[in-house]
């Protein structure tokens, strides 16, 4: 039963995903269909048209194994190995350091604002 329920839940998530893709294509925007689908589902939750329980089993399965879903994509760097020579390597180092700078800036700013908020209340 649980297996069938999961498949149905994932099927419902696919409906929202394809609705999102359709909206993206219609509006011709760079925001990906999956993110539009997520916002759409959130809207349905708020409007009480869909209950989280209707999709929770399938959603939890996907969310708890998200790293698996990335493996085929990350393995794709293989197709671009030659890029990591010369300028590509410099850029990869810049990309990595810049990633740490983003973490630092976003994390510190958020933490500072959170603490300010908590000391207010």
């Amino acid at each position: 039963m649980d297996g069938i329920r999961m498949i149905v839940h994932i099927g419902i998530l696919y409906l929202f995903y394809y609705a999102g893709v359709w909206i993206q294509e219609t509006l011709n925007t760079v925001i990906p269909g999956s993110i539009i689908g997520m916002l759409l589902l959130l809207l349905f939750f708020y409007a009480k048209l869909v209950k989280p329980a209707l999709i929770e089993k399938g959603a939890n399965l996907l969310l708890s194994h998200m790293p698996l879903l990335f493996l085929p994509v990350t393995a794709g760097v293989m197709a671009h190995f030659s890029l990591f020579a010369g300028k590509g390597l410099i850029l990869a180092v810049i990309a990595y350091i810049s990633t740490l700078i983003v973490m630092l800036t976003a994390g510190w700013t958020a933490q500072w604002l959170v603490r300010r908020r908590e000391s207010d209340g």
Binding site: I10, L13, Y14, F16, Y17, G20, V21, P32, G33, S34, I35, G37, M38, L39, L41, L42, F45, Y46, P52, I55, E56, G58, A59, N60, L62, L63, M66, L68, L69, F70, L71, P72, V73, A75, G76, M78, A79
Partner: peptide, 27 residues
Amino acid sequence: YPAYMIGGKWIEHLLGPAVVALAIPLY
């Protein structure tokens, strides 16, 4: 890589509904 992706794309494809599923923790 393209040969591997004949199968790999089915796993990658689940990323779409997985991102949609993030609506649950958000809500």
